[in-house]
Structures are given as C-alpha cells and as structure tokens.
Amino acid sequence: MNVFRILGDLSHLLAMILLLGKIWRSKCCAGISGKSQILFALVFTTRYLDLFTNFISIYNTVMKVVFLLCAYVTVYMIYGKFRKTFDSENDTFRLEFLLVPVIGLSFLENYNFTPLEILWTFSIYLESVAILPQLFMISKTGEAETITTHYLFFLGLYRALYLANWIRRYQTENFYDQIAVVSGVVQTIFYCDFFYLYVTKVLKGKKLSLP
C-alpha cells in the first residue's frame, strides 16, 4: 500500500467522521443531502459484499465495516433521529436520473458477468455520481455551512489521492483497474468547481455562498 492510498483512505474516513460529528453536535442535519447519504450507503453495501466471500487483510475488513457503519448511522441521523431538521424541500434531485444509467452501465461494462462483480461495478459507477444531489442542493440554496464544505473537501481529496495511488500502482506494479480509474477521474472532476470555491472562499474564512 502506497502513501497516496493510505492518505486517501484516511481522508475518506475523516470526511465521514466530520459529517457525523457535525450532525451529532449540532443535532441538526440542515444543508445535508439525505439522498447523497443514501447513495453512499448503497455504494458501500454493494461494494463490500466481498466481506462475506474473501478475506484480504485486517485493515481492509476493519475499514469496510467502519465505512458501512458511518454510512448507515448518517442515514439514520438524517431520516430518523434528527429528521425534523432535515431540509427535504431542497433535497430534490431525482435519483432515478442517476440510478437508471448507472444500473444499465454496470450490466454493460464490467469485468465479469456475475452478480457480485456487477454489484461491485454498480458501486464504483454510483460512487462517482453519488455526491451530485449534495452539490445540487448547495447550488439550489446558494450556500453551505463551513463544516459541510470541509466534509466535501476531504471527500473530494480522497478520490484525488486515489488517482495518485493508481498512477503509483501502475508505475510500480503495472496494475490498473480501468473501471475504477475512469470512474475515479469522473468523480474527481465533479469536485473541481467545489475545490475552487473552497480554496478561494472557505480557506480565507468566508462562508461558502454562491452569487
């Protein structure tokens, strides 16, 4: 495992903990897209089914379980415990616009036409677009709380670090996973606009608000 991979995983973990901590401390999930969080829970559920079929390492197993737990607890906080604070009027992205093409593509373009492999492929494609309901919500309301922007920054940074990981793996192991790389590039591109706003506004102490 190279340094980009471990930093990527830690960035991913930090993003999820930041979001959970923010909701827990403020007892409020306004500004968070429940739809994006449902999609992430679905991503982890369909990707980590191999927890039941093969063991890779302790690290791998522990991280998968932690990611799954974080995703489900977040969804529970939004739709259960703190649902009264959930801003559902602004979380209006139509999920079928993402799910239908992603399901179709995962049947068409995969490594192996087996249920587990198709679900893994589905999870990779879905992850690349799962943040869109959240970004749509921010563009609709025109603003985001600072901790929400930190969450988005680390979530985007994780995928950008994975790109560096894949370049390193290609150089050192001659390994590449075409589905993950192409989806990862797409996913990272969705964050570029946000990265720009984060650096020019949030890091200078201003709240992220769109004109």
Binding site: R5, D9, H12, I56, S57, W120
Partner: peptide
C-alpha cells in the same frame, strides 16, 4: 488485467 478480481482497495 485483473487475474483473480480480488479488490484490496476500498
């Protein structure tokens, strides 16, 4: 490319 389809990445 992927011999055994074992995925160690998260």
């Amino acid at each position: 490319e992927l011999d055994d389809l074992e995925k160690d990445e998260l």
